[in-house]
Write a protein that binds this DNA or RNA. Sequence first.
DNA 1: ATTTTATGTCAGCCTTGTTGACATTCCAAG
DNA 2: CTTGGAATGTCAACAAGGCTGACATAAAAT
Lengths: 168, 168
Amino acid sequence: MAESGSSAGGGETLLFLTDDQLRKGIEAMFFAYRGFTADPDRILEDKGYGRAHHRAIHFINRSPGTTVNNLLSILGVTKQSLNRVLRTLIDDGLVRSDVGTRDKRERHLYLTETGEVLERELSNAQRKRMRAAFRQAGPEAVVGFRQVLEAMMDSDMRRHYAKLTETG
Amino acid sequence: MAESGSSAGGGETLLFLTDDQLRKGIEAMFFAYRGFTADPDRILEDKGYGRAHHRAIHFINRSPGTTVNNLLSILGVTKQSLNRVLRTLIDDGLVRSDVGTRDKRERHLYLTETGEVLERELSNAQRKRMRAAFRQAGPEAVVGFRQVLEAMMDSDMRRHYAKLTETG
DNA sequence: ATTTTATGTCAGCCTTGTTGACATTCCAAG
DNA sequence: CTTGGAATGTCAACAAGGCTGACATAAAAT
């Protein structure tokens, strides 16, 4: 409404910024995210877990020894929600929770060997789909894909994303 | 595991298919989707609605007169789940449900004027973020973005996506 | 006339999010 | 040393939004 695809100032047409193009992007995100989560969802439901368990497992695997608080800020949920998920994972022997040495109030989280097995099963399934999509679209498309996604993140999330990708 | 970034057959390196690149794509999807839904979520919670209401409103707006069954296959939920959401939208006067003329069993769904007001508020917010991301990434990135997302969809969802984008 | 289809509705369950309240443990500052 | 605050755990209650199962209705299709 306030801004159409044609810039008033410059001579550029900016046809890729029309409301129609934006709508296509929005719907592409919606449908693609469904595919993105479909394979892990199938694996998880067989084992009585949900997406929340997957997220915890993923980020514990990415940052072994991370604290509950760090995980909270990445996942953006309350400690009570996360605690319920972590409790089942710890009770089922997929996650180990070690009291901190420097600060004994903190718990440091690690995947057990059983946890790593499930993590690999989940990430293999998700990577398989991502690999097929990347291959089909080609390397230049992948660059653009990530550029747009990074620009779409909230700054907090972009910070977490950058921190995760810089080291690992 | 079964397939690294380096192709065994050809001379191509395919560095964009390494597990590390795939992981970055996975995490980018996760963090970006949070941003993608953040603005509508804020608007909706003020009005006592959730993401499920947004999805219904979006696709009714995109295909005025659509049937409940068509909406079900797009959204991928049960009729009971959708019915609960539609019920509140109809009761609140945002959606109109007309008995079909050719087949009186079907209900055809339309946004009321009030419904269109909320739809515009939601889609304006979502387009604003998408526009900023598109502008920042540039037109070539946008093409790649959509290519990867389309390749990531399940075939059912890609069918719906294509049908929506071909006409509208 | 019977079956199937499309929809609605009621009841109940699960996951995963929320808030509020309170206990524990322990670092750190006064 | 005592107190305050931080990190965590736990209990209770609640809500959104998925799910299944069962059943009713209306109308199309056979």
